[in-house]
Design a protein around this nucleic acid. Structure first.
Lengths: 245, 245
DNA sequence: ACCTGAACACCGTTCAAGT
DNA sequence: ACCTGAACACCGTTCAAGT
């Protein structure tokens, strides 16, 4: 008889168990021995399927990123609508697994789903007419906002202990102890407000860009993904900006 | 003779050494034994000054938050300018210590400097005329954006290995391997673009709010820090929003 | 009051040994 | 090819003991 026996472990089973453990008990609970125990196997067995624990984490993270919907790109929708739908799907995928966000925020690295995501966003923006440098920055700032909003609950960050918020120390935080109760509403409201404000600001810039393009030197779609900085000169000295009076 | 001898350790020295270690070698390098070694002391000595390693981390984080400038609040500047200056100072403080950002993003907890920061931002917005619920959301979304932008470099997240970006897999990432070279410019450009876009979008909302307030029912400054959700109904179904056509 | 060494229950990872 | 136990160099934390 040869051996038709299936192996006890495979990458999929390990990744699924690791994600469950991280979701339920946090990143610190994910030890190789503990994970192996969940899979009824001894610790070193995992090393037959992943070179290191970091490799395993990479696979877990890429699985989460794979849940982000990218179908709105290239579906013919205007870029602001595509970006809005994508950002919501992106946030939903990360918010479902908040304990893994610090790992995933380190960048796409060599994870295929993360690279696919970056490719889709950048491609949509460039095809819509954004210069490549600007498209890069928009991809970056959207990731900043989405990962920041999924990394940790704003509301839950304020302890429910009312005695903490002494009016002498923190005159405006008298109601802060009630934030945690409304965790989901506060966090989602903040995300939605920020997303809409960001998109409004970007649409404003796009309109200015098209106006300038119609009369000045056609910059078109050329340029590096780094691009130039627009009219702002340096961080020092307040730019006139477009805000306030 | 009594004992004029000063103790070998104190909280300040420990916190300073811990921050240096985290900055130079990452969060994983901060073990109690390693830190004690840097201070020429044995591991358990630290427990005379901090109850747990988490307590120590809290002190490190609050020290970083303490570097954020809050003087623009209450200096009479309009809220968008105050918010812009604060966001830049906030990001600069975090970006100087990126390895500690995942810890700090968990919320203010009981850290005095973090609570002071939240108090100052919320107070400025409420005094400027924002309803309390909206002010809470703005504080949250600003933290999302700033922590997201400090958590990890966008540009450095793309490996410099040009062979990784196969055009068949990622048609638009042909230049992505050059991002890392321009790390600082890309990350700061994205932060500045996002910050200005966010502020533009918020100013737009503030103007709408004032218009509505002048004719409709004066809501004024009352209300809980949770507030209500405005006109958006639910996450499902695309809201008409203010973007696009 | 503050520091120490020894000890406890853990880590990630390697490796020779089994089937 | 895949899993195991034993081992290595680590962890955070406790505690009795020293001064």
């Amino acid at each position: 008889m040869p051996r038709p026996r299936t192996p006890l472990l495979n990458r999929e089973r390990i990744v699924a168990a690791a994600l469950r453990l991280v979701d339920e008990e946090g990143l610190a609970a994910l030890s190789t021995r503990r994970l192996a125990g969940e899979l009824s196997v001894s610790g070193p067995s995992l090393y037959n399927h992943f070179a290191t624990k970091d490799d395993l984490l990479d696979a877990v993270v890429d699985g989460v990123i794979g849940e982000v919907d990218l179908s709105m790109f290239g579906a013919g929708a205007p870029w602001p609508e595509a970006l809005r739908d994508w950002a919501r799907s992106y946030r939903a995928a990360l918010a479902a697994h908040p304990n893994i966000v610090p790992v995933l925020a380190q960048g796409p690295g060599r994870r295929p789903n993360a690279l696919r995501l970056a490719d889709a966003v950048f491609g949509c923006l460039v095809e819509a007419g954004w210069p490549r440098g600007q498209a890069t920055r928009i991809g970056a700032l959207m990731r900043y906002f989405v990962t920041g909003s999924a990394l940790a609950s704003f509301a839950a960050g304020f302890p429910e202990d009312a005695g903490l918020y002494d009016a002498a120390d923190y005159p405006h935080l008298g109601e802060a102890h009630r934030l945690a109760e409304h965790r989901a509403a506060v966090d989602e409201g903040a995300f939605e407000t920020g997303l809409e404000a960001l998109l409004d600001g970007l649409v404003l810039r796009f309109e200015r860009l098209k106006e300038a393009g119609h009369q000045g030197s056609q910059a078109g779609n050329q340029g590096s993904p780094v691009g130039h900085q627009g009219s702002r000169a340096t961080n020092a000295g307040r730019s006139s900006g477009s805000t306030g009076s």
